[in-house]
Amino acid sequence: RSIYKELEASGLVASQPGKGRNVWNCMGYVLAATNAEAIALHDCDIVTYDRSLLARLMYPVANPQFNYEFCKGFYARIAGGKLNGRVCRLLVSPLIAALKRAFGDNEYLQYMDSFRYALAGEFSFRRDVLNDIRIPSDWGLEIGVLSEMHRNYSNNRICQVDIADVYDHKHQSMSAGDDSGGLSKMSIDISKALFRKLATQGTTFSTESFRTLKATYFRTALDYVDAYHNEAIINGLNFDIHEEEKAVELFAENIMKAGEIYLERPMETPFIPSWNRVRSAVPDVLPRLAAAVKQDMQKYGG
C-alpha cells in the first residue's frame, strides 16, 4: 500500500477503482516478477471453466514459432437455451456499424469490426507488450486494449482464437436508471472508449453529431435484433424481443450520455499511465513491488 500511495501522490495510478486498474496492477507485478514471457487474463466468474480454455488462449503467444504478440479469445455466447452477450450484440456491433455510416469507414473501425467477440475478457500477450500499453481504468478495458494493440502493432502480430465450445459466466443486470453500475455503466464506458480513440485519429464530435449517431445506432440496432430473432428461431433458442429492444433503447440513451461526458470533460485523462512512464518517474518501483508482494505472500500464506 505504501508503494501504491506513492504512485497515487504522483498521479501515476487511476483515481477510481475498476477492472482496468486491477489489470494494470497485475501487469506491473508481472513485469516485476521477471519470470513470465507470456501472460493471459480471463474473467474470474466463468461458470463453465475448463483448463483447455487457458491452453487455447495462451498457445498463440507462448509458441516460440509464432510471431503473435497478442491473442484475443472468442466463443459462442449461448447458454440456458438463449443468446447472451447483450452488450456486444446490441451495443458494440451496431455502434461500430453506425459510426461507419455517420463518420465514414476507416481502418480502425474495420479492425474493431473484425473481432468475433470484442468484449471478451480473455486475452493473452507477450511480456514486452506490457511496458508501454495504456489502458482505461473502467469498463472500457477490452476496447482500450484492442485499441492500444492497433496503435502499437501491425495486424499480422495480432490474432483471435476460439477458446471454448461452451461458455457462460455470471450475468449483470441492465441497471436501467442507475448509471453507476451494471450494463448501463458498462455501455457508457465502452462508448466513451470508442469516441476517444476516434478523436485521436482526427474525428470531430459535437452535440449534433452525437444526436445523428444515436439515431443511426438505434435504427441499426433494431435491424440487428430482427437478425438475432431469426437466428434464435433457426437454432431453437428462446428470444424475448421486448427485452432486447429495451436494451437497445437504454444503450441509445447511454450513447448520448457518453457523448455528453466526452464533450463536457475535454481534459479528462482516459488512460492509466504506462509502466514505462511509471518506471521513469520511480526507477526502483518494480523491485520494490516484487518484494512487497513476496512479503504479503509470506505473511498471508499465499
Rank of each mutant, 00 (worst) to 15 (best):
R86H: 12
T200V: 01
S10F: 08
E260D: 14
F115A: 14
D189Q: 00
Q16A: 14
L289Q: 08
D179W: 04
R211S: 09
A193R: 02
S280H: 10
Y75C: 11
D284P: 01
W139C: 03
N276Y: 02
N155M: 13
V61R: 04
G259F: 05
D226S: 11
A252F: 08
M58P: 06
E253P: 05
Y4N: 06
Q172Y: 11
K19Y: 07
L7D: 04
G85H: 08
L109M: 13
Y300E: 07
T212L: 13
S175Y: 01
P266V: 05
Y4Q: 03
A118C: 07
L198R: 03
T220F: 03
K100M: 11
R196V: 01
N84S: 14
V166H: 06
T34W: 02
G81D: 00
D165G: 06
D189Y: 04
N84T: 13
D168P: 05
E264C: 02
A76N: 05
I190H: 03
E122G: 14
R101K: 12
C159Y: 14
V225M: 02
R196E: 03
V23L: 08
L289S: 08
R56D: 12
T207N: 00
A14T: 04
I234K: 15
R279G: 00
A164S: 15
P273D: 01
Q298L: 14
R21M: 06
N238S: 14
R157I: 05
I133V: 09
Y49M: 00
E122M: 15
H229L: 03
D113V: 03
F66K: 09
T34E: 15
A97K: 05
A98C: 02
Y59R: 13
Y4D: 04
L90V: 02
A215I: 07
F70L: 12
A258R: 08
L54S: 12
I241H: 12
I188F: 07
V278P: 02
E107G: 09
S15A: 09
R51I: 06
R219E: 13
E243R: 08
L198N: 03
N106F: 12
G11M: 10
